[in-house]
Design a protein around this nucleic acid. Structure first.
Lengths: 200, 200
DNA sequence: CTTAAATTATACCGTTAGGTACAATATGTC
DNA sequence: GACATATTGTACCTAACGGTATAATTTAAG
């Protein structure tokens, strides 16, 4: 079997570059020129490797979920660690990503979810974005409902409300990080939220 | 002096319609077609009355600040009302606007500020957006530093942190409202934040 | 009724959007 | 080296973008 010319770019690396463009500019704001420039490839290469803009966006979103959402979850079940510390570590780990200066500030999902209401994001991508937001919520709900320490603190009695409080805070910090607020300032916000739901 | 044909549209009403388009779609996402359709006028009328897209956006932002930001401030100084109640009224008043179903869900400023980092918003408009966000922050800072009850509660000792906590929560609720979370659920988030900073 | 001023509608401008056809260029197999 | 295959670079497509020139309207003043 004959097999033609080799790809001159690393697909994973190109996808990572695309993710950063969407992360910085959103779905609508990211033009194909922005994307191809950052990815270091031209349009035919992009379309043959990733399909089209929407398919590329979904793949970039999946990469973001894996590399910037799920990675933080493991500290929630760190053994021999008080719940208060685990929750704080989790939130600060996310905020560190939001404030990381080597990446676009803020949160990919928060930015792109805010675009969905305008109707300029294809429906499949919009649905995918919405589902992505549920991942941390479900995990936090499980913690509040099942963790022995959480039950002792009666956090299970309004688990949904407590999850929403944390999630709202983290969404807010994403906007704060995007506009340049420092992680040291946001740590106080986290402490405030945790104290507010009755922890510590 | 001769004076020509009369305007067939109400300028205030057209500006209000433009504000809602930006509120829903952001600066980049709002096309001139979106704008002229919602405003009920055509492009030459838009340009003669408002200048260009950027000038229209700045006027729409000013209208939003007057009609959806400053209006909430007065409850912060309501006489014969405990500080806890005033702060809660203030936050819930804002969230009611964010959840109002007769308007686009969420916050005009939060949406458009998130676009600025991408570089697709003209610089003058971007600066104006940033300044707009300072209005509530400055007022809250004054409350925490000067209100007798706030001083008694020692909220003045970390006024900036407490302001950031409230502001982050309200920014978060704007995103929550945009994705359809009900005001009744967000009330618990407000209670959490206020309890967190040591009120109530 | 004429005239000057202002607003309207229509048609158009150059540019950029997302997307693709096609020829040129590499690669592995025979 | 010839050939099939896959990727690349270039050029192009239609549609929509922000913005405008121009001519057709409507109004008030003289």
């Amino acid at each position: 079997m004959a097999s033609g010319r080799k790809k001159a770019f690393d697909e994973k690396e190109a996808l990572r570059a695309a993710m950063e463009v969407f992360w910085l500019k959103g779905y609508v704001g990211a033009s194909l020129t922005d994307l191809t420039l950052s990815m270091g490839i031209n349009k035919p290469s992009l379309y043959s490797a990733f399909g089209n803009k929407e398919a590329l966006f979904i793949k970039a979103t999946k990469l973001y979920i894996e590399s910037a959402v799920k990675v933080h979850l493991k500290v929630l079940n760190e053994p021999n660690t008080p719940l208060a510390q685990r929750l704080k570590n989790y939130m600060m780990s996310i905020i560190a990503t939001q404030c990381e200066s080597e990446q676009p500030k803020g949160c990919f999902l928060v930015l792109c979810q805010s675009e969905t209401l305008g109707g300029d994001i294809p429906e499949a991508a919009a649905r995918f974005l919405q589902e992505a937001g549920n991942i941390p919520k479900q995990r936090l709900t499980a913690i509040f409902k099942e963790d022995p320490e959480a039950i002792t603190l009666k956090l299970n009695q309004n688990a949904d409300g407590n999850v929403l409080s944390l999630y709202t805070t983290l969404t807010g910090t994403a906007s704060m990080a995007r506009s340049g607020v420092a992680i040291t300032d946001l740590e106080y916000v986290v402490d405030t939220t945790l104290r507010g739901i009755g922890i510590e």
